[in-house]
């Protein structure tokens, strides 16, 4: 019984998050202006991180958690530096 509930919930979460990543990717590809693309990329990173956490639950391996943390840190740094670039037109002042 509980195996069925968990399989359903995990599959649902994985499909929903994958779809969410696709939608964020759409904004990343077609966003009319640069700030839309950066926002899409930030959302893409967050959904990818959550997808890794869910996959980690499904597989039962702690390594997905570590990968999720690395993705989170990289996404933060990437978004901040791109936003900085949008404000000033250069990253290093």
């Amino acid at each position: 019984m509980s195996a069925m509930i968990m399989t359903f919930a995990l599959s649902y979460a994985q499909i929903a998050l994958a779809l969410a990543a696709c939608l964020a990717g759409w904004r990343l590809l077609y966003g009319p202006r640069a700030q839309d693309r950066v926002l899409g990329m930030d959302t893409f990173y967050v959904t990818a991180m959550l997808l890794f956490v869910v996959t980690g639950i499904r597989v039962g391996s702690p390594f997905f958690f570590e990968a999720a943390m690395v993705i989170g840190v990289l996404g933060f740094v990437a978004t901040v530096s791109l936003a900085k670039f949008l404000i000033r037109g250069e990253v290093i002042e």
């Binding site: 649902y12 929903a16 969410a20």
Partner: peptide, 19 residues
């Protein structure tokens, strides 16, 4: 299962809004 589905649904809705 409820928390998983709640979280995934909200994230999906957020990206639907983004598009």
């Amino acid at each position: 299962a409820l928390f998983l589905m709640l979280g995934a649904t909200l994230t999906l809705l957020g990206t639907v809004g983004l598009v």
